[in-house]
Design a protein around this nucleic acid. Structure first.
Lengths: 194, 194
DNA sequence: ACCTGAACACCGTTCAAGT
DNA sequence: ACCTGAACACCGTTCAAGT
């Protein structure tokens, strides 16, 4: 799912400043949000992080909103999706759920944006399609794949948004219990193979 | 769960302007967010909505963040919680889930804040306690009540955050399927009565 | 082609001043 | 006691100008 190379902040030989690019800007924005928080991300601050005036960023992104969308897409690119040939749905869905959770814990500030109906919808829809294909290979038809995936996605996102329980192993165990409950409920309710 | 009377915007007899109060400010903020959106809520605009300078609001709320917390608490107050005596957990949990969903659909902008770990945590914890008490009456002990409630809460919040499916009855059916799957999974995994 | 400076219309918030 | 005005340090964004 990763479609762009990670943008490394290497200096050009001779110390000349590398030119701006969408990739470099998004990389810097992700790093900034990880190091600080989304609320502190401003065009001015991001510009100064890149050694450039805020206004220069507008050559690459017409608005801050579109830049943030690109950041969300980049982060979603880190998701581990099931192989196109996977048919054993249970381990594949568990792996997806845990991958999403890991990603959410790495970018807690971005999570509300991952879930929201924003400009990253295209990428989110791509992810949804890949997961629905898995559910189809597992035997579901019609509304089945969408419903199964939406249920899993809802649970996973909601879990990540919740205030962490006291100890982190506790939170992990809570997450796993709910996930297994949901999967077993889906198994008994939907005509899934195996 | 509603602890404060709804603040009606009635003029005083004689047309004299009613004095400001926390209640009146929160009421106006909720109305503003419903009528516009959270992003447009500013101290200046809210002030002008109340016929007052922005700075006056600081007499009642030391910061915008605390005002928003109060808004979130007010909205959470609209939740239908199970009676303290309810023991039949399934219909009570369904009613809670649907009540939460209804509230989320009425205040889509506030939903991320309801889920987040913000200043409304006290109220959210209160809700959680009430629900955990229900799970305890249903036979759960130890980690059980917390886990059951966190699973339900995760699913409900995540569902509400998801982009609505094409048709709204479709979204409703998707929500119900996942809810029933989760509840039945919890039923088989936890020592619940009935 | 790519970046900058100054400017516009906003923010949250502080503080001294009004009544 | 309660509200206001002016000010500070920020925003996103436009636009004309630099190189």
């Amino acid at each position: 799912m990763r479609t762009t190379a990670p943008s490394e902040e290497l200096d050009c030989p001779g110390g000349a400043r590398r030119p701006l690019s969408c990739d470099r800007i998004v990389g810097a924005a992700v790093a900034f949000v990880e190091a600080n928080c989304l609320a502190q991300l401003s065009m001015r601050r991001l510009g100064s992080e890149l050694g450039v005036e805020a206004m220069s960023l507008y050559r690459y992104f017409p608005s801050k909103a579109l830049l943030v969308d690109a950041v969300v897409c980049r982060v979603l690119g880190g998701l581990e999706l099931p192989a196109e040939t996977a048919t054993d749905w249970e381990p594949a869905v568990r792996a997806y759920a845990r991958s999403y959770r890991a990603l959410a814990r790495q970018h807690p500030d971005l999570l509300p944006l991952l879930a929201a109906d924003g400009g990253a919808r295209a990428t989110a829809t791509e992810v949804e399609q890949r997961m629905q294909a898995l559910w189809r290979r597992a035997g579901l038809t019609g509304d089945g794949p969408r419903r199964a995936q939406r249920a899993v996605q809802a649970y996973v996102i909601g879990s990540c948004l919740q205030a962490p329980a006291a100890r982190s192993e506790e939170a992990e165990a809570d997450f796993e219990l709910g996930l297994e409950a949901l999967l077993s409920g889906l198994r008994t309710r939907l005509p899934l193979s195996s």
